[in-house]
Amino acid sequence: MLNLPKEGVLSHQPIGDFITEAGAVINDATVAFQRWGEFRGDPHGKNNIVLVEHALTGDSDAATWWEGLIGPGLALDTDEWCIICTNVIGGCSGTTGPTSIHPDGTPWGSRFPATSIRDQVRAEQIFLEELGITRFHAVLGGSMGGARALEWTILFPDAMGYACVIAVSARSSAWQIGIQSAQISAIVRDPAWANGDYYSTGASPQNGLAAARRIAHLTYRGEQELDERFGTIPQAGENPLGAYRRDDQRFAVQSYLDYQGDKLVERFDAGSYVALTDALNRHDIGRGRGGLNKALASSIVPTMIVGVDTDILYPYHQQEHLSRNLGNLLAMAKIVSPVGHDAFLVETRQMDRILRNFIALTQQVPSPNELAERNGIYDI
C-alpha cells in the first residue's frame, strides 16, 4: 500500500544524491509534490496514477494552475484517477534548486549544476521509485511539461501506458534557443545577479527577471490577441507620444508586460528561471538516439499530440512533425485560439474536451504492456 500524503498537501521526498546527464552531482536532492484522488491498483502494474508535468514557471499545485480541469467530475476526475504533480529539479517551489541549501549550509547558487529535460525526467523516475511506484497509467503536460512527457516515453517506455504531449516540439529550434537565451541574458546582466550568488547579498536580480518575463510573455501570447486588446492605446493617464521618451509614459501593452514581469518576481526565483530555461535550450529528443525521426519512430507509448494554432513559441507545424513521426500516435488535437501558446492553460473548455478524449482513449486502446501480455510475448 502506498503511503501518499493528504490531497493537495505539499510534500517532499528525498531522492539521494542525483547525478546529472553531464556527470555533475546534486547532493541530497529532494522532490516536492502534491497529489489528488485516491490511489487504486498495483504500483508495479495497472493502476490509476496520472502524472501531470508543469510548464517553466509552474509548480506542483496543478489543481490551481489547471483550475477547472483537475477535481471531482472534471476532465482529470479525481474520483477516478490519482493525479500526481511534482516540482521539477532546479525549481524553486520545494524541489532542490539554486535556492536550496547546499550541504555546506549556504545556498547552491552558481554551484547548482546545469540540468536537462532528461535529468528532470530521471529525477522524477527516482522520486516515483522512492514512493514505491514503477508503473503508472499516463503522463501529460504542456510546454516544458510536454517536453518532459515526451522524454518519459523515450527514456522509460515501460513505466507508463499512455502520454499526452501539449504545445512543444521534438527539440528546441534555433529561434527558441535564441529567444530563451535572450531571457537568460537579461537576468545575468542585472548587476544584482552576482554570478548567481546573490542569495546572501540582500539583493536579487529583480529587474533582470522582470525583463526576461516581458520577453517571454510576448512568445506566450498571440499577436492577434495582444493587438485586439491593446492596439496603440496609451496607458491611462500616460502619454507615450510626448516630446521625449520617458519610462513612465507607456503604451497600454507596455504596462501589461510590466505587470506580468512584476507578478513573476513576486513568486519565482531568478536562479531557477535561468536553470530551467537552460534546460529547455538543451531539449532534443534525437540527441544520441540517431536523430529526431529515428528517436520518435522508436516510441512505443500511445501518445496524443496537442498544439495551438496561433502558438508563436512552439508553432503548430512542430506538433505536426511529432504526429507524422511518432511510432505510436494515439490522436492529434488542435486548440483554436487567439491567445497563442498559453491557450493550453486558459482555454479550459477546449482542454476539457481534449483531456476527456485522451482519458477515454486510454481506456479503449491497449497499452504496449497490455498487448505484450495479451499476445504472450516473453523474453527468451
Rank of each mutant, 00 (worst) to 15 (best):
A170Q: 01
M160D: 00
W81M: 13
A63D: 10
I49Q: 05
V52I: 12
G16W: 11
L74I: 10
Q260K: 14
D197M: 04
N3Q: 13
G242H: 06
A147Q: 14
W65D: 06
N328W: 00
E225R: 11
L10D: 14
D227H: 14
Q176A: 13
L371S: 11
D352W: 03
Q249G: 02
L276Q: 03
G208C: 06
G231A: 08
V139C: 10
H317A: 14
V274Y: 02
D269M: 04
R356A: 01
Q318T: 15
T310R: 09
S200T: 15
K294L: 12
V301I: 09
T303R: 05
A236I: 11
L128I: 07
I377Y: 15
L51W: 12
A194E: 15
I83Q: 03
G261V: 04
N3H: 14
R111P: 04
L128Q: 06
S173W: 07
S255V: 07
I285K: 01
A210P: 04
I285R: 05
L69R: 00
P315M: 02
Q183T: 02
L150Y: 02
V365N: 00
Q364F: 04
Y378A: 15
G109T: 07
R213C: 03
R221A: 04
R40Q: 13
A210F: 01
N47T: 06
E347G: 03
F39P: 08
D379M: 12
H321N: 12
I117L: 12
L345P: 01
D247L: 09
G202R: 09
T57K: 03
G237H: 00
G71F: 01
S60Q: 12
V165E: 04
Y378S: 13
E124K: 15
D158Q: 13
A75S: 13
G58A: 12
L329K: 03
Y259E: 08
G141T: 02
M144W: 10
A295V: 03
N325T: 10
T232A: 13
V121E: 02
S323L: 08
F358T: 07
A333Y: 04
L76N: 00
G73H: 11
P98M: 05
G242R: 03
C164H: 00
E373L: 12
